[in-house]
């Protein structure tokens, strides 16, 4: 991908992450301060009706932060980032994040992206969008 100025509608970027691990959820709980036990305490998660602990939705949104970092390095600033969490993610799941340029405003120098995260079986876990501007 070239510079921020060269972004055009239809361009996309993707990122496939390593399988989610429970250790990663514990690290993310510590770093983010989200200590809901549903993310690391198996009996607690099962009592909530889940087959195992579940990943923080914000961890997947963090993967999009990683993906958008490729734009940030090239002179973009993130103005807005939003998401809907569609399905829960479990340890072992492989998450792929896709971002596509859906609008470019040459006057305002803003770029709109649509975002989608899927598991390897195709289940959509996160849908959202981001607005970038020139730094």
């Amino acid at each position: 991908m070239s510079g921020y100025d060269k972004l055009t509608v239809g361009q996309h970027l993707s990122l496939e992450k390593s399988p989610i691990t429970t250790e990663q959820l514990v690290r993310y709980a510590g770093a983010s301060g989200d200590f809901n036990r549903i993310h690391y305490d198996e009996p607690f998660a099962k009592a909530g009706g889940f087959p195992s602990v579940i990943a923080h939705g914000m961890l997947t949104l963090g993967f999009f932060g990683e993906l958008l970092g490729q734009f940030v390095e090239r002179g973009a600033e993130i103005k807005r980032l939003h998401s809907r969490f569609r399905a829960v993610t479990f340890p072992g799941d492989v998450i792929r994040c896709d971002a596509e340029v859906v609008a470019v405003d040459q006057v305002a120098q803003t770029v709109e992206l649509s975002l989608r995260a899927c598991k390897s079986d195709g289940t959509v876990t996160v849908e959202g969008g981001a607005t970038l501007c020139r730094k």
Binding site: F44, A45, G48, G57, M58, H82, V88
Partner: peptide, 11 residues
Amino acid sequence: FRKVLHAEQEF
């Protein structure tokens, strides 16, 4: 908190 789901987030 066993019954809480994060549905949406915006920054």
